[in-house]
Amino acid sequence: MAPGAPEDPAAIFERLHPKLLRVAYRMIGSVHDAQDVVQDAFVRWMGADRSEVREPEAFIQRTVTRLCLDLLKSAKRQRETYLGPWLPDPIVDDDGDDDVTLPLMLALERLTPLERAAFLLHDVFGLSFDEIAKTIDRDVAACRQLAARARSHVREARPRFQIEKERGLEIARAFYVASRSGDMAALGKMLAADVSVHADGGGKRPAALEPVVGLAEVMKLQARLATMFAATVSKLVRVGFINGLPGFVSQEADGEYSTTALDIEEGKIAAIYVVRNPDKLKHLH
């Protein structure tokens, strides 16, 4: 590109692409839908009259956010009829540095789309309230109120006890081994008294239709699962961080993947999140 020449519009979008995907995924909770939103925004950006656009990044981010808000309206209706617990698509990485953890994403589900947008854009992505006001077509004072209400709702979902990363991965490995081998004594020592299990099969693979809560009930569930695992072959694919929580990806006897994320508080597993819905795991293959 010659000095002083305007940057190629496709190159501008490509530079922003990773950030746009992060915004869209955290707004929607679906990898596939986030990719569709970003692709739609690209088409709109390439077709826009760029002589009228003074700040390309702001224009593109506004487009992505508004498309997400439109999608959330229909997503809310779909999730009201979803079979069993709904969990966001699992994102697996090696560092666990994401501060938008799985429990926080679930807390965001309880917000209105505008509250979610104001909170994420300001508290997570650092946009000013002036820019957020332009993005969601509300005045600055209203945006501040939306973010404040969101903050009050999600405060409890923020991690109270930060576990050392390697220790978290050790617990994830130990949980996998104990659950597959049926070592109930080892499992019992890992679990908190009020532990809960949330399994998302989406009606496409077997999974409990309601959360299983309490140590006694979870141990009964794990005992039943251990009997099933003993008769099949389960393969550990990867240990890592799933939406910011220690966990693992496994391949079950039917060849399908599943992910298990562990919310650990004071060294004990307080919640277990399992995604088995194959539609939510395609990107892991």
Score class of each variant (00 low, 15 high):
A2K: 08
P3G: 03
A5D: 08
A10V: 11
A11L: 14
I12K: 07
E14I: 13
P18W: 10
K19F: 02
K19Y: 02
K19V: 09
A24N: 04
Y25V: 07
M27T: 05
I28R: 01
Q35C: 04
D36W: 12
V37T: 08
V38T: 11
A41H: 01
G47F: 08
G47V: 06
A48M: 01
D49A: 06
R50T: 13
S51N: 14
R54Y: 12
A58S: 09
F59C: 05
F59Y: 14
R62G: 07
T63N: 12
R66H: 09
L71Y: 08
L72H: 03
L72C: 01
A75K: 09
A75M: 11
K76V: 08
T81Y: 07
G84H: 11
P85K: 07
P85H: 00
P88V: 06
I91L: 11
I91D: 03
D93K: 10
D94A: 14
D97N: 14
T101S: 07
L102D: 02
P103F: 04
P103D: 00
P103E: 05
A107T: 09
A107S: 15
L108E: 00
L111T: 08
L111M: 10
P113C: 05
L120Y: 03
H122R: 01
D123W: 05
F125T: 04
S128C: 00
I132T: 02
I136D: 01
D137I: 07
D139I: 11
V140N: 01
A142H: 11
A142C: 08
C143G: 00
Q145P: 01
V154W: 01
R158F: 11
P159W: 01
P159Q: 06
F161T: 15
Q162D: 10
Q162F: 13
G168H: 02
L169R: 07
E170W: 09
I171Y: 03
A172E: 01
A174I: 04
A174M: 08
Y176M: 03
R180D: 03
G182A: 05
L191A: 02
L191E: 00
A192R: 09
H198G: 01
A199L: 11
G201F: 06
G203T: 11
K204R: 08
R205M: 14
A208S: 12
A208Y: 13
L209S: 15
E210R: 12
P211S: 10
V212T: 13
V213W: 07
G214H: 11
A216W: 10
E217Q: 14
E217S: 13
M219Q: 14
K220E: 15
K220R: 12
K220Y: 10
L221G: 08
A223D: 14
R224S: 12
L225I: 12
L225Q: 14
L225N: 12
S234A: 14
S234P: 05
V237W: 06
R238V: 11
V239C: 00
G240F: 12
F241T: 05
N243S: 13
G244M: 04
G247S: 07
Q251M: 13
E252P: 04
A253H: 08
A253C: 13
D254T: 15
E256G: 06
T259Y: 05
T259C: 06
T260N: 10
D263Q: 14
D263M: 04
I264C: 01
E265K: 06
E265S: 11
E266V: 12
G267A: 05
K268G: 03
I272G: 00
I272F: 03
V275T: 15
N277P: 03
P278Y: 04
L281M: 04
L284W: 11
